[in-house]
Design a protein around this nucleic acid. Sequence first.
DNA 1: CGGAGTGATTTA
DNA 2: TAAATCACTCCG
Lengths: 216, 216
Amino acid sequence: MIMERKRMDCPALPPGWKKEEVIRKSGLSAGKSDVYYYSPTGKKFRSKPQLSRYLGNAVDLGCFDFRTGKMMPSKLQKNKQRLRNENFNLFKLFWEKRLKGLRSSDVTEEVLRTMELPKGLQSVGPATTDETLLSAIASALHMSSTPITGQTSAAAEKNPAVWLNTSQPLCKAFVVTDEDIREQELKVHRARKSLEEALMVDGLARAAESTRDTDI
Amino acid sequence: MIMERKRMDCPALPPGWKKEEVIRKSGLSAGKSDVYYYSPTGKKFRSKPQLSRYLGNAVDLGCFDFRTGKMMPSKLQKNKQRLRNENFNLFKLFWEKRLKGLRSSDVTEEVLRTMELPKGLQSVGPATTDETLLSAIASALHMSSTPITGQTSAAAEKNPAVWLNTSQPLCKAFVVTDEDIREQELKVHRARKSLEEALMVDGLARAAESTRDTDI
DNA sequence: CGGAGTGATTTA
DNA sequence: TAAATCACTCCG
């Protein structure tokens, strides 16, 4: 008899918060479970982001595991890298689309995955996150209609997408001309579309973040 | 001035059926809308299941999109493949775990993905679905404590997980002995655990299926 | 119109 | 791919 419908106390959260796990009984996802949290006032929370927005800085959920309801110190590092990785995917999408047809090697994928943000872009203060910076850069790239260029190196020749140095034009070892772009017109258009969406949504999200779920 | 309160004809349904869309004016869901249908006799329908029950086999709503009121061919395939895929995943999990260490080739994955159910198991009547059959078989396998065996073929030799024929022991080209299992004791235990869960939930789901939505 | 329960989409 | 998040359906 598994009675997973009781609202349990959750020691990892402030007093009065409850956790509930509900098993899905039918449909495609039968057998999976959903975890919910309830504030002391009874408001229901269905995801960690939602919880974070509500709690704000009052509670650090960095190492909080939403599913188990416990603190997982191991999660901390992952979280630190999360936003960074998130924006990296944005970049990857953009470059991958743009470079389609140039056949960048498989190595590119690996390099991108393990790459760190350039030192010069990191730690620009508590208020300015990597997210903000990356969005700005991505935006600039998006708006630019001139070919992308920068400094050269042997490594870059082999892996066009390698990020060399940000003190000058972001990267190099390849040039994407308007001609190249025309050849990929449809696909590039999709890439831009994706980026537009992402940027717009990003803006909306940040705006919403300061107005939504503030009904404490 | 958007007057979304008119009852419109709905070409996707039999003559005389009307569709209405009502915008929510307040509350958390302000701006969202509800869609209703009206039969030729004026009876109101608020959901697709309700509509399906009423129309029965007269109209196939498989690809009918309730919100738009139009037929969406793309929906059809998804629906048809859903239950099958669900059970296939069950099987895949089971075999993958059990075969771990035998290093079945990559082809296996592809074969499993594109494989159809054996003819002999299909169309056993309207009441007995693929879901039921597959669950029964999975259950039998789960309960069995004897090595799995069956007929042989060249293809099977290369792809242990290929499903050859169900008229006899389900498949072959490999034997999983108790020794093999012991080597994988912990992992196999997890596999069984997963299967138990799935079967239990499956049972619940089927029970629910026969009591729910049958109020024609 | 609310909201629990599920599907669909995105992320890791 | 599976897990997490988000969006929607459907019935009270």
